[in-house]
Design a protein around this nucleic acid. Structure first.
Lengths: 137, 137
DNA sequence: CCCTATATTCACGTTAACGTCATAGCCAAG
DNA sequence: CTTGGCTATGACGTTAACGTGAATATAGGG
């Protein structure tokens, strides 16, 4: 009843998947165009479908995206993945990228902290100036 | 010899000013187009010039920009400045904007910190996974 | 076969803050 | 007079990651 052949049945169409994941169909097509995800083979212009494996990959991409990786970095990762076909080369490279990313984040935080100090300082001087004016009345 | 009439002489052309300030002429024209700075009045297509007062305003804009204010926020400030013509209304609004800005910066820092934790955590799990694989050999 | 919900492929639009031509005016030095 | 600088205006280009709309095409139920 629920079994024609396992494989066939678990292929999910783009709209359903996108609803489930909370992203747009445009996004998935864009990612495919950018070659960081795949959908099942199809003849010419038929509809896209995704196997459970592909869905896992897409969730993985979403995770990386949430962690701030750019599409470009993911393309790079995917190239490596294609070359090594297994996790042995993928994981070290991903770690390298993540390390790089942590450094970037640290730098951003440092810059923002400096910025914050400057803004607060400038604000203080404005307040002082304002008090001067008021004090003169 | 160095005095025709003080005012006239202190007007500086755009190229010189930009060199001094380390910004492009395009930037100054853009800022003028965006109405956050001014240059001296001129007939039709003659060259731009800046009085010492205008130069101070431009330096002020650069400061605000370095502190992360957008052109839009500066436009808003300039409107208020035009309305009140003096510092009484300008300073409180600027303080308000800066406060808002500090909040934004705090939020960004918090988000980045969370992100950092996530990335580090994910990285750790990758390392563990890698060690598992190696341990099995 | 038809109908309708879903999908497909272009391809231009969006946002910020300028960068980068292309074309042309103006003025002083040689 | 010519050449070299500096400047002016106008307009398209850039970057990221999709959003949006138009004109079809497909899939599944009745």
């Amino acid at each position: 009843m629920q079994n024609d052949r396992q494989e066939t049945e678990q292929i999910v169409p783009i709209g359903e998947l996108c609803n489930e994941l909370g992203i747009s169909t445009r996004t998935l097509r864009y990612w495919e165009e950018a070659r960081i995800i795949e959908s099942v083979e199809r003849q010419s212009r038929s509809n896209r479908g995704y196997t459970p494996y592909m869905v896992r990959r897409i969730k993985f991409i979403i995770k990386l995206k949430d962690m701030g990786l750019t599409i470009k970095e993911m393309q790079h990762l995917y190239e490596i993945y294609g070359a090594a076909k297994e996790t042995e080369a993928l994981i070290p490279e991903l770690i390298r990228i993540l390390d790089n990313h942590i450094d970037l984040v640290d730098e951003k935080i440092a810059n923002l902290s400096t910025l914050r100090r400057e803004v607060v300082e400038y604000r203080k001087r404005l307040i002082d100036k304002q008090n001067e004016v008021n004090g003169r009345m």
